[in-house]
Design a protein around this nucleic acid. Structure first.
Lengths: 115, 115
DNA sequence: CGGGTAGAAAACCAGAAGGTTATGAAACCA
DNA sequence: TGGTTTCATAACCTTCTGGTTTTCTACCCG
């Protein structure tokens, strides 16, 4: 089952710091200190978040001297979006309902000039 | 910020039991005991999951005598998918990269593999 | 060599998550 | 009236999370 993948992916995305990190990485590779800079949070905290992202397969890391540059790995996001797409009809349902309502009203509206 | 919405939505989706509940609800309203039936888990556990889903705005509940029928509310999922769509280019990039790699390999004379 | 920088690892802590059992409250049924 | 069903609440336990500070490793540079 891809269940574990969705578990870890959604869990990783549930934290705003981690989403911000992913957003930053979408602009290109970054080191840990670069990633940590915008946050009022210690470096080890960011390292922990990175480990979560790494275990979810959303981030991979290279090596450049002392630096461990991080890069975005977006493939797991596709599985998440695929799952969510299965519900698209349901959040669009309101439109359908509106459409159905209009249809009903149109059919129920008798004796007006029918096209 | 819609940050809290994404937090609670992704967190709600991070649990397989809750995703299964949503999947079940996509087929139509269901009572708590109906929802609990497929799981080897106590009824209060399911009630807790439902409360999480409800606070995330993913489920709403009615009243029918003793029963509290649950229905899917999929609108928050749209926000989640909207966020994820911002990364579509990045998970599609892998295909581009794979394509580029295959092209490169095809053009290069097959040598000894550098594993 | 010695010192600074990048980042990981360890130890610790408070609070949240996810489960349990036991109990309680409403509404139906006889 | 009393019993049953449906579900929520309470109390409790264990594990996971997210943060801290402190320390350790590895690399570069002068």
């Amino acid at each position: 089952m891809g269940t574990d993948l969705l578990d870890t992916t959604f869990a990783a995305l549930a934290d705003p710091t981690r989403r911000a990190i992913l957003t930053r990485l979408a602009a290109g590779e970054a080191t840990v200190t670069e990633l940590a800079a915008p946050f009022r949070m210690s470096q080890p905290a960011i390292s922990k978040h990175l480990k979560v992202l790494e275990r979810a397969g959303l981030v991979s890391r290279g090596r450049d001297a002392q630096r461990r540059p991080c890069r975005l790995e977006a493939r797991p996001l596709k599985a998440a979006v695929d799952w969510l797409e299965g519900y698209r009809d349901y959040w669009e349902e309101s439109y359908q309902r509106l459409d159905a309502l209009l249809t009903t009203l149109r059919e129920a509206a008798p004796r007006e000039g029918e096209a």
